[in-house]
Structure formats: structure tokens, C-alpha cells
Design a protein around this nucleic acid. Structure first.
Lengths: 333, 333
DNA sequence: AGTACAAGTTTAAACGATTAAACATATATT
DNA sequence: AATATATGTTTAATCGTTTAAACTTGTACT
């Protein structure tokens, strides 16, 4: 049946102790082991098709070379791109990744953290949903290496990798203003998440008392986006442009604007957040804020491995976004 | 520092053997253990914040409750949706998933299989790239539970879950023909993958000698798609419609058609494969073949767990697709 | 000859759980 | 009273590695 070949099998086959086999196969004690025996052992390992049992190894060395990744929703392109980059980078360093989706639920996040820790991951990379301060404190308390990605609590000391959301939003707004747009609507989530509120804060600062902010509940995206846009258009001083603060909001908004028969950018200019194929295919390719996905993932892994290897230091990395300007926010009048 | 609490710590704390602690915490031998001791043990476990070490457990019971997932590219929405469903379903059954992307490379696939087996996964779910017959044979030989998803070799006996690609393609073509389209171009990959060639075969059968098939190399998608479309349009009998056989091809094709200023569906009708947000946002929402993602994932997990639990039987599941009809393939004369 | 050291290999404990089997002790049965 | 059975708990082996320490044998040096 299964019958996995173990060190012991090789040892018996060659007629030596398992210790010696282990030393040879791990290239330890090289200078002490006779060439002939080493060769015999290697050959036997090859012949018997030996595969070291990582579970046993992990138990002994107390290290699994596994990292846990918790994303909001692996089916969201933002998450899956990040996941892919993290997997890649981790593999380069000999680590494997186990992942889970939190669905933006604090409860699921708690469950996933427990599950991943039970599986003895060496560290965690987490995109936190709302109301998870407690879990972060817990992770800090038990002193397990972890890195927050995309989202973080500014008041809780942790490793984190994120973008500068405030600046990103300001760049979007400045761009619209620079293109002659005078009445800018902002569509954002109603949330306690710091990173999303930074986007609002960035926009608001530039729009001053003139600001038109439409808030959207996470469970009612399409409905609330409609309401927000309807509000913007019905205003006594209606909008000539809209800044959507996330990719889902952008897609939802564009669908609705399409259905209203409003022409972009002639009647309404648009700036979105994050990329998706959809932005390219849209008849007026969408201007958007591009996050440095590769860097985000790479940095997250770098910080985590650092933290795994020498626990002491803590780092907060903040990366810059790029505004990709296309037709949807074109200058007019 | 780390200091994880073990069974032994609890045992010492309460003053019993580790065996008893294990029995209590696993609810075994319930009828034999005194209520009081059981209560004390549970309390101690709680107090000391005991977390069972799954690694140690796995080593002993020779089961990791982990499944390995190899997808083509986790950043492709098809893969990530499947991944999400599989993760979810697996979790419901107490399994965790480790994943990797093969990037459509046989070499990477080999590496991932090795890695996942070294980590003692209980089984594998794999979307195979080309030229991997050998690996499949190998998996069969070593008798490890695995399920192929989306792609499979019709000549090699394995568990598999896929859609009926032949029928899906025929439905697309029939739909176009039914809508009055007389000259249909098909854009497909140049590949040895059975499932993709089934799509071509399905289309070809209905188009007969009239068939116009444009082949696209995987490394040159945009360039080859352009060439294919240019060819279709330059034909002495130019196309009035195009069937794209994958999501990436569809997106690439739409971008090019857009750039040519060709109006869909007035000048050209389109049917795509798989969903993406982009299809909704397109000015003429795209008609496409919808795969039953949920079922694909669920079935894959079901077959795998079945295979893990009682090795004997083998199953090939073939699911039906659905044609989602929208504006891009509208009737015209 | 006696000691020191090198070279090559083995011993045995450990990692943290599981679990069959053995062991006590108390209670019931004849 | 002797035996059987029930109740509660422990012993000890095991999973497949790793690795410090110990052990043998041979060679070199004084």
C-alpha cells in the first residue's frame, strides 16, 4: 500500500544507523563521513525513492517552513494577485503557504488564526477585516511572527505593509481638479477600516466643505452605490466627476452609470481604485489608482521572514501608488 | 518566549498521565473517565491555553488533514474562484489547503507535486498543464489520492471533474447560428490540452468545412489574437461573429475589436467563455459560457475525500455549462 | 608502551501527540 | 471467600526525523 520509505529503511538497506543516513542526506558532518558509505547511502535513497517526511522533521526542529495567509476573499482579484506573489516569494525561500479567506468576518478571522497556529505555521500574513483589534493584540501577546498587509491599526504596533492611502486619494482628486472638474463625488464604504478612511480623509481635505461623500454598506454594494450616485446627480449642484475608492465600488458604479446612459467622460468623469480587466475593456478606459502589488507581496514576505528569523525589530512599510490616467477622467469643456 | 503548552504540561499540572489528558481532550473512553478528573483536565487545558500540536498529531496518526491544490495561476479569476470554493468546502470537512500555481509549466507542476507530497498532504487537486502525462502516471503508481479538475487525459484512468467542453462549444455555435450568423470565427489556443481541443472539436463539427479557426500561442496571446481576428476580417468571406474559447482570449479579443472601432453586436457578434466583471461592463454585455464553479469545486473535494477515505473507486464527473445570453450576440440579419 | 587525537560511526533522547495493553482498585456475583 | 467484572488510570511503544554525546578503531607522537 502506502509504505513510505523512511530513514530507517535506508539504514537497514545499507547496514548503517539512521543517524548516519540523516547526516549524509543533510550534508552535515561532511568531513567525518567516508566517501564510500556516503555514496552507498545516497544511492540507496535514490533507489528506494526516499522522500523525507517533513512532518517528522518539523516536529523535531520545531519549524514547519509554512506561512499562513489570510486574505479577505481569495476570489477578489486584489487578494488573489497578492496571494500569488506571496506564494511565489515564499517558495523562493523554502516556505509553503496555507491560505484562507476571512470574508471580511472577524469571527472567521479568529477561526483561521487558530487553525493556522494549530498547524504550527512559522508566521502569518493577514489582511484584517473590521473589529479585529483583539486578535492583533493576542498575536502580539503570544509573540508569533506576523505581518499585516493592506490594512492595519495605526495605534497598535505591528509589522505592516500598506500603501499611502491618503496620498493616493489626494492624487486622484488633484487630477480631477486639474482637469477642470469642479464638483467631485466620492463613493466610499461605511467602515471602521483605517486604510479606507484614509482615502476619504485625503479626498475630503482637498474638497473642503464642498465634499460630497456617498457611503456604501458592505452588504448592499449595488443598492447603496446607486443611491449615492442618484444623490450626487440630484444635488442642487450636481457632480461632474466621481472618485470611487475601491475596485468593487468602481465596477458597481460603472455598471449603474452605464445603465443610466450617462456618457463617460463627456457627461461624467471617473477615477477608480485598483486594476481589473474591466477597466481596460470599458469603452472609456478607466483612470485608476494602481497599487504596487508586487512590492506589497514581496515586502510582506520579507518582513515576515525577518521577523521569523530575528524576532526583535518591527517595521511599517508604506508604499506609493501610481495614478494611471486614461480616457475616463479626460479634460472637458 | 514561545513555550507552547503540551499535553505533558497539562498532565503535570493536574497530576495525571498524558494518556488520560489525551483521552479527555479527544472525548475518547468517555464512559471510563471520572467526571471530576475530566473536569480538572479540561479546566487546566483552558487555563494554560492549550493548543494541540497538529504536527505531532499528524506524525502519529499519519494523516495531516491537508490537501494540496495546484492551479494554473491563482491570479486568474477562474483559478481563484475555484480555490476559494475548494478551501471553503475542505474546511467544512476539517481539511486545510496548501496551494501553488503551476504557471502552465509541467516542470513547476512536478516541483509542486513533490513539495506537497513531502509535506504529507492527504491528497491533491490538480489543474494540469500540458505534457504532464508522466506525473499523472506517477501519482497513480504511488497510489496517492488525487482529483484532476478542469483538465484531464481521457486515456489515463483518474478521478476527474470537468465540464462538457464539446457540448459547451456546440451550444455557443448553435446560438450564433440560431441568431442568423453565417460566418463564425473561432479563436482558440494552439495546445495539446484535451479540454480545450474539445471546444474546438465541438465548434468544428457544426461549422463543417466552413470552419475558420484562429490558433493562439500561450506566450503571445495579444499578438496572435490580433492576427486571428485580422485574418477573419480579411477573409474573402469575412466573419459576422466570433466565438472565443477562453476568458483570456475573450478579453484580449474584445480589447482589439474595440481598438478597431468595430461595433458589437451590430458589425460583429461575440460569444465568450467563462465570466469576468469585464463582460458586464462592456458596452454590449458579453454573451458567455458559464461554468458551474461551485459544483466544480464541491465535486472535486467530494471525490478527493472519498478517495482518501476509501481508496478503491474512481469517478469521472462531467458537468454542464450554461450559455448566458446577452447583447453581444444579438440577432441581426 | 602509553597517551593523544582523528576518523568514522552509533546510541539514545527528544519533538508532542495517540492508543493498545497492562495495571490497580472497587464492586458485584456465585 | 473466591472469582469475575467494572471502573479509572498508567505504561510504554510508536510515528520519522535530528543531533549531542559517546563509542570504537586506527594512527601518530613522545
Amino acid at each position: 500500500m502506502k509504505k513510505n520509505v523512511s530513514l530507517k529503511d535506508i539504514a537497514e538497506h545499507v547496514g548503517v544507523s539512521t543517524a548516519l543516513v540523516s547526516y549524509v542526506l543533510n550534508n552535515k558532518l561532511k568531513d567525518r563521513i567516508s566517501k564510500e558509505v556516503a555514496a552507498k547511502i545516497r544511492q540507496a535513497a535514490e533507489e528506494l525513492n526516499y522522500r523525507p517526511n517533513q512532518i517528522a522533521r518539523s516536529l523535531k526542529v520545531k519549524k514547519t517552513f509554512t506561512i499562513g495567509l489570510i486574505v479577505a476573499d481569495i476570489a477578489n482579484p486584489f487578494s488573489s494577485q497578492i496571494a500569488r506573489i506571496i506564494e511565489d516569494k515564499a517558495k523562493q525561500h523554502g516556505y509553503t503557504v496555507i491560505f484562507g479567506s476571512s470574508d471580511e468576518s472577524a469571527e472567521k478571522t479568529r477561526g483561521l488564526i487558530k487553525l493556522l497556529l494549530d498547524r504550527q505555521v512559522d508566521g502569518l500574513i493577514i489582511a484584517l477585516p473590521e473589529q479585529t483589534e483583539e486578535q492583533v493584540q493576542y498575536l502580539n501577546k503570544i509573540n508569533v511572527p506576523f505581518v499585516l498587509i493592506d490594512r492595519y491599526y495605526p495605534t497598535i504596533p505591528t509589522n505592516s505593509v500598506s500603501i499611502n492611502n491618503f496620498n493616493a486619494a489626494q492624487e486622484a482628486i488633484r487630477h480631477l481638479q486639474g482637469n477642470g472638474h469642479r464638483r467631485i463625488g466620492v463613493v466610499a464604504y461605511e467602515t471602521s477600516l483605517f486604510h479606507l478612511n484614509e482615502r476619504i480623509r485625503g479626498a475630503q481635505e482637498l474638497l473642503a466643505e464642498n465634499a460630497l461623500i456617498g457611503k456604501v454598506g458592505i452588504d448592499n454594494i449595488n443598492k447603496d452605490v446607486k443611491a449615492a450616485i442618484d444623490g450626487f446627480l440630484a444635488d442642487s449642484n450636481p457632480v461632474d466627476s466621481i472618485f470611487f475608492t475601491t475596485n468593487l465600488l468602481t465596477v458597481s458604479g460603472l455598471k449603474y452609470i452605464n445603465s443610466l446612459g450617462i456618457k463617460i467622460p463627456e457627461q461624467l468623469a471617473i477615477v477608480g481604485f485598483d486594476e481589473t480587466d474591466a477597466f481596460d475593456l470599458f469603452y472609456a478606459p478607466v483612470t485608476y489608482i494602481k497599487q504596487p502589488m508586487g512590492e506589497l507581496g514581496d515586502e510582506a514576505v520579507r518582513l515576515l521572514l525577518n521577523s521569523i528569523e530575528n524576532k526583535e525589530q518591527q517595521e511599517k512599510v508604506e508604499l506609493n501608488t501610481e495614478l494611471i490616467i486614461r480616457d475616463s477622467s479626460f479634460y472637458q469643456k
